[in-house]
Amino acid sequence: MDCMNKPLRPSASDGEDYFRLFGLPRSYAIDRASLDSAYEELSLSCHPDFFAAAPAPELAAARAKSTLVNEAYRVLSSDSLRAEYLLGLLAAGRSLDTRALPEGFLMEMLELQEELDELFPPESPPATDGPQAGQAQRMRGLVKERLESLLEERRKLFAGAGESPDEQILRGLQTNLNCEKYLNRLLERLEIIEQ
């Protein structure tokens, strides 16, 4: 049933992946300038606006290609989405434990959420000043620090992953990505509180 939850993305055709589409090496570290200029070039060649007067099949093909290019750019230009996408490529069909988390991590997240509940009961006004605002700011600082170190760890894991990484590295990466989602969720809540 889990497969039902995966959003469908326009997929690159056989042997083609988002990195190759932009002529970039398949790696987590990315050269933004190259990515941006490749994106522009591709868009200028296939955007449907240039085919507005073309026959229907040509227009449809341009639309499909342009949609793919936009999605590929969206994924590659985001650190999280690029990591997730690359992990899928590296796993090459091997199944990963999509729930993997470090020992005690969930409990820690639950406790942080509960702490927020106590500090800022639902329906309470936004914390823009006072001691509570300080608390929220402190927690946000903590979460941001955690996210930073996650990103650092991820860079190292990908750097040492090579073409065909072992199970342990894959698991490490999956765990890393999972942790980020929980932390982002906390961050979102803190931002709402602070507004």
């Binding site: 959003p7 469908l8 949609t67 936009n70």
Partner: peptide
């Protein structure tokens, strides 16, 4: 960015 596509099962 447009054009865009999303799917759901």
């Amino acid at each position: 960015t447009l054009p865009a596509q999303a799917g759901e099962l």
